[in-house]
Computed example of a mutant assay.
Amino acid sequence: MPIAIGDKVPAATFRVLDANGMPQALTTEELFGGKKVLLFAVPGAFTPTCSKQHLPGFVTKADELKAKGVDTIACLSVNDAFVMGAWGQSINVGDKVVMLADGAAAFTKAVGLDQDLSEAGLGVRSQRYAMLVEDGVVKVLNVEPARGLTCSSADSMLAGL
């Protein structure tokens, strides 16, 4: 059963690259505790919709989202921290978006938003979604009903704040 509005996010550990390019652990408590976090997830780093629309939209709208009270914007994908770091550099995210690696899909499976894209050669990946989490509790959850980018875009999330 997928996570729902009002649920607490499950405990998990992500990986992020530090300033020296080394992977570091970041727990859900560290990410969400006492903060308003806009987390969006994509099926894969460097994939077309993710790279041309989804991530760039949040980079472009970061200041507007933060002006509406969002403390942290985070992008999650079932990729390793090095891939997420390289992808973030290629899009010039800077400090606007935290690039979260969920390499083993532990968080993705725990929230029930995984999908099997093995037929496309991708394996288990995340569905495309965006959620607003306040102090670890889901306040908004927009899961894309089909391929493409509609309800989980930066514009959609900004309109809902």
Rank of each mutant, 00 (worst) to 15 (best):
S118K: 08
I91N: 07
D114T: 01
V111Y: 03
A86L: 07
S152L: 03
G34P: 12
G160Y: 00
G136W: 04
K109G: 00
T150V: 06
L141R: 09
A101M: 05
L38F: 05
A86K: 14
V78G: 12
D7L: 10
D114Q: 14
A106V: 08
G57T: 03
T60I: 02
A146I: 00
E30G: 10
L26W: 04
V70H: 10
I3S: 13
W87T: 07
A41Q: 02
Q127I: 08
G88C: 11
A11I: 07
L38A: 01
S152P: 03
A86I: 03
A19Y: 09
T49G: 08
V78E: 12
G112C: 02
G6P: 14
K36W: 01
L76Q: 13
G136M: 04
K52Y: 02
R128D: 11
V16Q: 13
T72R: 10
N79F: 14
N92M: 04
V70I: 15
L141A: 07
D102L: 08
M131L: 14
S90N: 09
A154T: 01
K96I: 04
M1Y: 10
A25I: 03
G69N: 10
E29D: 15
D102C: 04
V83Q: 11
K35C: 07
T72S: 02
C75P: 10
M157Y: 02
S51E: 02
A4H: 14
S126Y: 12
V97T: 11
I3R: 11
V16L: 15
C151R: 03
D80T: 12
A62M: 03
Q89F: 01
K66L: 06
V93G: 02
A12N: 11
S152I: 01
G94R: 05
L65Y: 04
V97H: 00
A4Q: 15
A86E: 15
M131G: 08
T72I: 15
S118R: 10
K139E: 09
S126C: 13
P2K: 15
D7M: 14
A81G: 12
S51Q: 05
P56F: 04
M157W: 02
K61A: 14
P2G: 05
Y129T: 13
A104I: 00
Q89K: 15
T28N: 12
L122A: 13
L65Q: 05
A81P: 13
D80E: 14
D102T: 06
K68S: 10
G112Y: 04
T60V: 03
I73E: 08
S126Q: 12
S126F: 12
F40S: 02
I91P: 02
S118T: 15
T108D: 02
G33L: 06
K139L: 01
A101T: 10
R128T: 13
H54R: 03
H54W: 06
F40N: 03
N92K: 15
G57M: 06
R15I: 02
I73S: 09
S156T: 05
S156E: 08
V42C: 06
V133H: 03
E64M: 11
K66E: 10
A101H: 07
D155R: 00
M84W: 08
I73N: 11
A105G: 07
Q53R: 11
R147E: 07
L100A: 09
A106H: 01
T49A: 10
